[in-house]
Amino acid sequence: MLKDQIAIVTGGSRGIGKEIAVKLAGSGMKLTIVGSSTQVSETAEEIKKMGYANVLPVQADVSKEEDMQAVVKKTLEAYGSIDLLVNNAGLGFFKLTEEVSLEEWKKVFEVNVQGVFLATKAVLPHMKDQKSGTIINISSDVARYTIPNGAAYTATKYAVQGFSGSVAQEVREYGIRVGTINPGMVDTYFAESTQGLPEKEDWLKVGDIANAVVYMASAPKHMIIDEIVIHPFAQQYPIA
């Protein structure tokens, strides 16, 4: 289903994004992986050593319009098409609201919301021209309910959820699908944590999220999966 299609994955240097890239490459896709540091090139080489030749690394800031336009241009020059965009890049600050600085507030919105907007805006003209495409936004379970000490992060994920729904309605007539994946607790590097800590043993793994991306992207053309919410069995959470 995905073989020889073209994907862009933001936040692809490590963690969830890296695993998404590996799973998509394993499904036969050609990739552009986007990261904010030179680590993205190291990750691309790692994936190539797994036997997947078509992996293009691009160092870019998702919050800058010129960077995301350049990502799309380089992808089209390399592969000639874009079939899938996975907006995975994200960050979070978890502290009392009065302890969140204005700079932190701006930064989390620039990456989590502005980045999704700019990447989506950059790929849409091409997807509209080809009358097909899939956009998957990696959001969070806190796009459905609120938590203390997470006002900034939660606000961004509510914004991503609203943005995704509106764009989905705008682009249906062009055969473009937009969906969100909302994970609960994932064992990764998020929020300056360390992947593989003993206390995260029962959390979701990065491969769980990557498998959900492959599932959503592989849906037949007559079907759209609007949203996937996925939690570790051990996590207690409010029912929306």
Rank of each mutant, 00 (worst) to 15 (best):
K64Y: 00
K64W: 05
Q69V: 12
V71P: 15
V71W: 03
V72M: 08
V72Q: 01
K74D: 05
K74L: 03
T75W: 05
L76N: 01
E77F: 01
S81H: 14
S81A: 14
S81T: 15
D83T: 10
L84H: 14
L85G: 07
V86Q: 14
V86A: 12
V86R: 13
G90C: 09
L91F: 08
G92N: 10
G92T: 07
F94M: 08
L96Y: 04
T97R: 12
E99L: 06
E99Y: 03
L102I: 01
L102W: 00
E104G: 14
E104R: 07
E104S: 08
K106L: 00
K106S: 04
K107S: 07
K107A: 11
K107I: 05
K107V: 00
V108K: 06
V108C: 14
E110V: 09
E110A: 05
E110Y: 02
V111D: 02
V111Q: 10
Q114G: 07
G115C: 09
F117W: 07
F117A: 05
L118M: 10
L118R: 01
A119P: 06
A119F: 04
T120G: 13
T120R: 09
A122P: 13
V123D: 13
P125G: 12
M127H: 15
M127V: 05
K128R: 10
K128S: 14
K131F: 04
S132D: 14
G133N: 12
T134N: 13
I135F: 13
I136K: 13
I136P: 15
N137T: 10
N137E: 03
I138T: 05
I138N: 00
S139H: 03
S139P: 15
S139F: 02
D141S: 14
V142Y: 04
A143E: 09
R144Q: 15
R144C: 09
I147R: 06
I147K: 08
Y153I: 01
T154M: 03
A155E: 03
K157R: 04
Y158C: 08
A159I: 03
A159H: 08
V160Y: 01
Q161P: 00
G162F: 07
G162M: 06
G162P: 12
S164L: 07
G165P: 03
V167I: 15
V167T: 10
A168I: 05
A168C: 04
E170K: 02
V171R: 01
R172Y: 12
Y174S: 08
G175W: 04
G175T: 06
I176H: 03
G179A: 11
G179L: 14
T180K: 04
T180N: 15
I181E: 12
I181V: 08
G184T: 15
G184V: 04
G184K: 03
M185C: 07
V186P: 12
D187M: 06
T188H: 11
T188A: 01
Y189T: 00
Y189D: 03
F190C: 00
A191D: 01
